[in-house]
Write a protein that binds this DNA or RNA. Structure first.
Lengths: 340, 340
DNA sequence: AATATATGTGAGATCGATCTCACATCGTCT
DNA sequence: AGACGATGTGAGATCGATCTCACATATATT
């Protein structure tokens, strides 16, 4: 029952022509007699011939696969992006290899090396690290198309798709300040991560503009998972004089903060005000609904894929740096606080 | 600046040996002189040689990649599974290609064909369809390892990892009945989908056991996304005599139902009781917390990957049919109803 | 000393598809 | 009639790694 897939040789034999002719007939290039072409088509049909993409790739040097290295597919933000990229890739006749760096530079590097040895055509990467991006520069040096997504990497000059993190964070914090808050907490993930740095920078600049001194006790750092965020929030709010409001840098952390507040019996927005970066499905179900800075998630993956496939199609030119705006969506998780 | 990656030939030339010897030195097989081996290693090192996996694969007939076709990576259930598979694959020196069938059989078939032409080593598939599984049978006929996940396909005899859908659904509905409900709604996705059928079957058998007649007006069908579930729920509860309780077959639909109830001003559990299949992060944050039937999501992907890699390692034997138990987690979204 | 065995190495075939080149066979134009 | 272009086709090289086979040496055994 174990029959090997048919090869071009088989097709050629069945059609009584040479491999070269069979190839011409199937890929329609060069001169092929009409009748011959038919014979070959028929033979291919009968054998269920379906070219070996590996062999084709060996010859052409390129496998019709694009690689995608993200922080974590479990994060709905990245899941959405991965999905959109996959859809576009399929439309372009490519498949998608996914790797998760788990925010470890070493992992990212080894994953990339492993994918490169596959002669993959192009990459979309959400780089983990700030500096140390020789592995990414290496791609560029060898003219392998690379699109950075969600984050840019220092000193790596290539296409990128990001959002206005700093501006979004600033809007959020300015809104809190405008509502009378001055003890504003920040729940962020690791400083190695670009978005985390930018969002913190927006947080800081909003504070500075309002003349509020930065205070490290107002800042908690955790990994970007619901569980870690719960712990970090509890720690942050167990201090003697905790923040009166909290800005969280992504939706998983927002959810973690929500769960933490519930477990601590802290009421939102009565006891603490909350505002998150990145919208999420249940943000409007919770009571109160959660005020967030939203980013156009559905655009990001598509934009990155579009740029990548343009490059694969041979488009030259200066790197495209796409940056989407963010939007403050006011709901009910922030309350006005009379200044004391 | 564009230097091609070094090939074995380059290494051999630099080390002044033949390609064969270089290969032997690098892969340590056959006889190689100690000194020669060193020279080759050094040359490889200097050139940054890193074998072309494509060429290796063409020769061996197999690319160290496993394919994974799921319904939708955006579903946190599948995202979790994909993540776990990716981690295990990496440990086994493989990469992961992901495709989304979007619950379309045609898509699943074409995706599988496209991945097969890559000479991928094995597959993990969540089959969309009930019958019509010739494409899956084709894999088995050619001895390509295949593990079905979350769902099994009729007439396809291979490894599989599923949960006790029927039992889980029965537990949920029995619990509702025990709480005095007899107008029990079901929000399910397409009947083509295995889990949907099984969970409905559990729903039906619980009703039947309690002597409650099945009523099609109590059943709503929608795609498995939050948005579609919102609409379906609203339709279901806009009838003259709507259900007094609802069982939803997955977490996205549960979230959709929650949003729908909120928008309709229906209070849980006062007006309507709700119980969902598959737990989710915010289930304990909502007010009330949501009662669910949980499945061991973190086990499923890992189990499937483990089985797949055992097969890839050459393990023979009868198909493994793994089936995990589900667990009813009682929280606060179901209220006792006095029988009228 | 002669044969057997262990140890190293290289030439060339192979995987499957593609592409260049050479060689046909037509028709057409001067 | 001879020549040139258009049209069709096949032989063989190529992509890069691997593996078989043949051929060397060196060491061991009788």
């Amino acid at each position: 029952m174990v029959r090997k897939p048919a090869t071009l040789k088989d097709v050629a034999a069945l059609a009584n022509v040479s491999r070269a002719t069979a190839a011409r007939a199937l890929n329609s290039y060069g001169y092929v007699g009409g009748e011959t072409a038919q014979k070959v088509q028929a033979a291919a049909e009968k054998l269920g011939y379906r070219g070996n993409r590996l062999a084709q790739a060996l010859r052409s040097g390129q496998l019709p696969i694009v690689g995608c290295i993200l922080g974590d597919i479990q994060n709905p933000f990245f899941a959405r992006i991965a999905h959109d990229i996959e859809v576009l890739a399929r439309e372009c006749g490519h498949n998608l290899v996914i790797g998760s760096s788990e925010e470890e530079l070493a992992q990212e590097i080894s994953l990339l090396a492993s994918l490169r040895s596959l002669s993959i055509r192009g990459f979309i990467v959400a780089p983990t690290s700030q500096g140390n991006n020789a592995h990414l520069q290496g791609l560029i040096d060898e003219d392998v198309p690379l699109v950075l997504i969600d984050r840019v990497a220092e000193g790596v000059d290539c296409d990128s798709v990001v959002v206005d993190n700093e501006g979004g964070a600033r809007k959020a914090v300015e809104y809190l300040i405008g509502m009378g808050h001055n003890r504003i907490g920040l729940l962020q993930d690791d400083m190695r991560i670009f978005t985390s740095r930018e969002r913190r920078s927006g947080y800081r600049s909003a504070l500075a503009a309002a003349g509020i001194a930065a205070d490290d006790r107002m800042v908690a750092v955790s990994q970007s998972t619901v569980e870690h965020a719960v712990d970090a929030t509890i720690r942050l709010f167990s201090q003697k004089s905790p923040p009166t409001s909290l800005f969280t840098v992504d939706s998983l952390m927002t959810q973690g903060a929500l769960l933490a507040f519930r477990s601590m019996g802290v009421s939102i927005p009565h006891d603490v005000s909350l505002i998150g970066f990145d919208d999420f499905n249940l943000a409007t179900f919770t009571d109160p609904q959660i005020t967030v800075v939203s980013q156009p998630v559905s655009e990001i993956g598509r934009a990155a894929a579009r740029v990548l496939f343009e490059r694969l199609a041979g488009k030259d030119g200066a790197p495209q740096k796409i940056r989407f705006e963010t939007k403050l969506i006011v709901r009910g998780s922030v309350s006005r606080r009379s200044v004391i």
